[in-house]
């Protein structure tokens, strides 16, 4: 798992540190009409001219950060601004994410750790409501559809879940905005942007983004739940219960439901990486400044350290949810737990 994280961050690091990207960074930070030499000297004075592996070691915190002596004093990775030689000697030698230093964002002119914390908080809030809406309704739809396979209820709910899986967020978001918020058509139920939801989330400005993300994930979970539910409903012990004369809703609630919910649990956990995609699209569409918005900003401006932090966080999210899904599966499924 740690190996995966290391490989991934190195890939991101390598791609962001290719020369054309650095050149673009230098030009956006300095001046758009910089000459070749000016770009090179800017890169050298900011420590970008080292070999990629060395820079990666510095970012990770296993190699000492770069320092550079100029006429005014010493500049360096672990030093704020330009300081005198004595102060530079006091600065720590190693500063990477292992030491808890996430670096400095070149777009926002702020410490990366601060940006990530704030934006992740915003997104966490969004995700909380998404999960609260998505998981129960998806399970409900799946269980109701799988309860009686082939019934009209099953067919209409299955059509509904196919429809939602076929609608990516940018399509459903656009349709929702058009139907519910547009001043041209008239249904002004909700607001088309969620910018104000960052300080003051209300139903009016926050429901549409939540609904847009939930719908896309919901169809998939509902279909998985339905498949698992129909499988359970054809099992031997359900037939036994039925023949004993247990009533239908007792069978569904007491006998089938718990066994049918094992498979969807894994699916829900593995949905997290997909939700991350949805978050990026929806935050861009509704202008909600969260984690996905930061990703777009960082990637668009080649903000290396911010982008690395973003990828570290998302990789951790992905790997941790995979771990939880494995552990939870064993925990939920007595057949695996006992054997």
């Amino acid at each position: 798992m740690i190996l995966t994280a290391l490989c991934l961050t190195f890939v991101v690091f390598f791609l962001t540190n290719l020369y054309p990207n650095l050149e673009k960074l230098a030009k956006t930070q300095g001046n758009f009409r910089m000459s070749e030499e000016a770009v090179n000297s800017w890169l050298a004075s900011n420590g970008y001219d080292k070999p990629t592996l060395v820079k990666y070691g510095q970012w990770l915190g296993v190699l000492p950060g770069w320092t550079l002596e100029t006429e005014d004093g010493v500049r360096g990775r672990c030093i704020n601004g330009t300081v005198s030689a004595e102060e530079a000697a006091d600065a720590p030698g190693l500063c990477g994410i292992l030491q808890g230093d996430w670096g400095y964002s070149t777009v926002f002119k702020e410490d990366v750790a601060g940006i990530i914390a704030v934006r992740l908080g915003n997104t966490g809030y969004l995700m909380f409501w998404v999960l609260l809406l998505m998981v129960p309704s998806a399970l409900l739809v799946g269980v109701l559809a799988g309860m009686r396979e082939g019934s009209p209820l099953d067919r209409s709910l299955s059509t509904f879940s196919i429809l939602t899986t076929a609608t990516p967020e940018y399509v459903s978001g656009v349709i929702f905005i058009a139907v519910f918020t547009s001043s041209a058509v008239g249904l002004k139920w909700f607001k088309g942007t969620a910018t104000s939801a960052m300080e003051n989330p209300t139903f009016e400005n926050f429901f549409l983004p939540v609904l847009t993300i939930s719908l896309y994930g919901m169809g998939y979970i509902a279909r998985m739940t339905r498949a698992s539910m129909t499988e359970v409903m054809t099992a031997q012990y359900i037939r036994t219960a039925r023949l004993k004369g247990v009533s239908f809703h007792n069978i569904v609630l007491k006998h089938a439901l718990r066994n049918a919910l094992i498979a969807p649990f894994t699916v829900i956990m593995l949905q997290f990486p997909w939700l991350l995609n949805g978050v990026v699209i929806v935050e861009t569409l509704f202008n909600y400044k969260g984690f996905g918005w930061v990703l777009v900003q960082a990637a668009g401006n080649n903000d290396i350290e911010l982008l690395l932090a973003v990828s570290v966080v998302s990789v951790i999210v992905v790997l941790v949810t995979q771990l939880i899904s494995d552990i939870g599966y064993v925990y939920l499924n007595p057949r695996i737990r006992i054997s």
């Binding site: 490989c7 991101v12 290719l18 054309p20 990026v280 990637a299 668009g300 080649n302 990828s311």
Partner: peptide
Amino acid sequence: NLILAFPVILLFYLLVTPEIVAT
């Protein structure tokens, strides 16, 4: 698994830029 652990959009942003095409 390595490729699957990448968020797709991050990968797109890293791969599909004019600068990367130039390299």
